[in-house]
Design a protein around this nucleic acid. Structure first.
Length: 428
RNA sequence: GGAGGGAUGGCAGAGCGGACGAAUGCGACGGUCUUGAAAACCGUUGAGCCUCCGGGCUCCGGGGGUUCGAAUCCCCCUCCCUCCGCCA
């Protein structure tokens, strides 16, 4: 969430920044007003509390020195203040809750460099790599759902039978390829990212910390009986790893990575991209994430993008880097770069990575701070993360790109060690 | 799932309802001493909010309650530990 003091100090600047996203800014005016009453109510409450506390101290002293009549009188006066205190406290608490509820629903302000635009059409393609639309042969122009079925490596029908549409089942070398991609991504980042294997079911607070709740509850799977949420990305547990903690500056930047299943209801996109692996409810992903000081954030953002890009590049896929515009930016993010991979069979660009800088927006929700060396006090960290590798769409692009004239698939050699030495997927 | 024990500052660990934001130890930081370091000694050392910058308020796992006054008493919840049961 945003800093209430910043909103208080420069409401117009914050409104202007949110307007770049196309968001309604009336919530800012409301929160400013609520905050004003909250503070004045809290101040009145504090004054009453001070009086009660002073009277109580005197009562204690009088009791020891034995003036019962005097202490009885002070007790009566203090008791009378109790009602005021309760009323003011209740009012101040209600207002504080309202302020927080507003703040939790206000998006992050986009970075100044973020391109302006209303929706994804205004995203800016920064670079296109390894792509020549005329270089694809007819045997590569077959969509992966057809290839997958023909080779017996992707079973959409059985997936739907056991779990419903948009749940898929990988088989044989298709399943091995999932595992191979996961391990490839983990191994390539093990030099500076600590591997974590977090829970995939988390509490509500954990979902709030990253900004996935309260606003986007419909997008997540929820287990009512146990009050737990299925994570949509490993970003969720990894961001809560340091929740409510004060880190030593020497541990920053703190880099983490995790392979998890990710669960998405895709409530808003029913009927869209339903073929094959374009959009599925459950998928594997390797996420990389960093906690940094504000000064380290920019370099960490470059590092995350660079690592995600290197994985795709070394798989030999065609891809492009996209600068997400203000209208398409995720609500917690200040700046996001996507990597999209070209799938020649589906003939589409598929988003396979999203590398985001959240500034201190998530850190404030999650209360993650550090002690700047040599200074007293604490400061909020910055958080950043990116998908190192999201399996299904990369799987799809690989299978389509590397399909041979004879229908087999010759995967890139970098994956061979993870496929028991054999990067060929034979015809069934 | 059943029975019992616990949760206090960076860590360890005290804390008869009033002088407790909290003893003590360790750690960390600053200083003295030393060629330098160690040891010793002295001092400092939780977080947050508001402020008319004088100060005020909150926080002892979380939430309610009793009281003039709660770390301390009562109730509920969460988590941790021990034992039993079940189990990959």
């Amino acid at each position: 969430m945003l800093d209430i003091r910043r909103i208080r100090a420069e409401p117009e600047a914050v409104k202007a920044a949110l307007a770049r996203r196309g968001h309604d800014t009336s919530a800012i005016d409301e929160v400013v007003e609520l905050d004003r009453s909250q503070r004045s109510t809290a101040e009145q409450r504090d004054l009453v509390r001070r009086d009660i506390s002073n009277l109580s101290k005197q009562v204690g002293q009088l009791r020891r020195s034995g003036s019962a009549a005097e202490s009885d009188e002070l007790m009566a006066r203090s008791r009378a203040l109790g009602d005021d205190e309760r009323t003011l406290t209740a009012r101040a608490d209600d207002l504080a809750t309202e302020v927080r509820e507003h703040l939790l629903r206000i998006a992050n302000t986009p970075a100044p460099e973020c391109p302006d635009g209303a929706d994804e059409h205004a995203n800016v393609v920064l670079r296109v790599e390894n792509f020549d639309p005329d270089s694809y042969a007819p045997h590569q122009r077959v969509p992966h759902w057809e290839i997958g079925e023909a080779l017996g490596i992707l079973d959409v029908e059985r997936g739907a039978k056991m779990s419903g549409s948009m749940f898929v089942l990988y088989r044989r070398k298709g399943a091995a390829l999932v595992r191979a991609l996961v391990q490839y991504a983990l191994d390539r980042n093990a030099d500076s990212y600590e591997e974590i294997r977090p829970p995939t079911l988390v509490r509500t607070d954990t979902m709030i910390a990253t900004g996935h709740l309260p606003k986007f509850a419909d997008d997540a799977y929820y287990l009512e009986r146990d009050d737990l949420w299925a994570i949509p990305t490993a970003e969720v547990p990894l961001t809560s790893l340091a929740r409510d903690e004060i880190l030593d500056e020497s541990v920053l930047p703190m880099r983490l990575m995790a392979h998890t299943s990710c669960f998405r209801r895709e409530a808003g996109s029913a009927g869209r991209d339903t073929r094959g692996l374009l959009r599925v409810h459950e998928f594997d992903k390797v996420e990389i994430l960093a906690y940094t000081t504000p000064e380290q954030a920019s370099a960490a953002h470059d590092d995350i993008l660079g690592r995600a890009e290197a994985l795709i590049r070394d798989l030999g896929l065609a891809y492009r880097i996209v600068d997400i515009c203000t209208g398409d930016l995720g609500s917690s993010s200040a700046r996001t770069w996507d990597i999209e991979v070209y799938a020649p069979g589906a003939d589409r660009w598929l988003e396979v990575s999203s590398c985001s800088w959240f500034a201190d927006y998530q850190a404030r929700r999650a209360n993650i701070r550090y002690r700047p060396a040599g200074q007293k006090g604490t400061q909020l960290v910055n958080t950043l993360n990116g998908s190192a590798l999201a399996v299904p769409r990369v799987w799809a692009a690989l299978v389509e790109t590397y399909r041979q004239p004879d229908g087999t698939i010759a995967l890139p050699d970098v994956l061979a060690p993870y496929l028991r030495g054999d990067a060929i997927i034979p015809t069934a």
